[in-house]
Write a protein that binds this DNA or RNA. Structure first.
Lengths: 109, 109
DNA sequence: AAGACACTTAGCCAGATGGCTATCTATTGG
DNA sequence: CCAATAGATAGCCATCTGGCTAAGTGTCTT
């Protein structure tokens, strides 16, 4: 089982891909519009899009000669969930430590 | 400006690094203990650790011959925040669409 | 003082990644 | 039906990545 998180985070690590996600968070858009603000060849841009789509963060349909791309909220939630969980564990532990120290101080007095 | 998110997500994209984070969410640990469960050379493992540390997701101090590594909650929160924001925008938009459709249906009847 | 331990550094290699140009296919507007 | 548009595909590079072995440094433990 190749973890999905691998591909999610891998896609998100690329600034171009993140910019696409940010744009798509506003509304779906055709490939050419997504490409416009990026100063790279279309073919290069398509590779990024492919990575995004294969990661599942994004989906697209072609109608006529236009391919329209839209965000997929589920995977974003998955990635967010993982982060939240790790941070939660760590912060809970810090709180425990703090409590322990407070307790020790009280006892000492 | 090289975005910090680049390095956060890049680190998190590697399963080895994610496993380290998961371990460190429980408690800080020395390098050798972090390395133990991974079936790769120590030198290779150290490269991953370096990526993690340069990303800021993790910090470490050396005392005697042991280097102890611990998680840094702030960056995790940053990454989580970015994801949450994008997802929020997208979901808000879906809700608006839904409302619009509901409204149109009502009007039609 | 010697050996074990816990890293650390250097250097090699194969494959993945991100960029390019050039060429191709399929739709659509006039 | 022709030209322009929108995207797809192929192939070439340079660099980055993740793996290895081998050898080095500094710190215990006995």
């Amino acid at each position: 089982m190749t973890n999905h998180l691998d591909r999610f985070f891998d896609a998100l690590a690329d600034p171009t891909c993140r910019a696409v996600i940010e744009r798509l968070a506003q509304s779906p858009a055709p490939v050419s519009e997504l490409h416009a603000p990026h100063d790279i060849a279309l073919s290069t841009f398509l590779k990024h899009l492919k990575v995004l789509e294969e990661s599942g963060l994004v989906r697209s349909e072609k109608k006529g000669r236009v391919r329209t791309v839209h965000i997929e909220a589920g995977p974003l939630k998955t990635a967010e969930g993982w982060l939240s969980q790790q941070r939660g564990l760590w912060e809970a532990r810090l709180d425990q430590l703090e409590d322990l120290i407070t307790h020790l101080n009280k006892t000492k007095m």
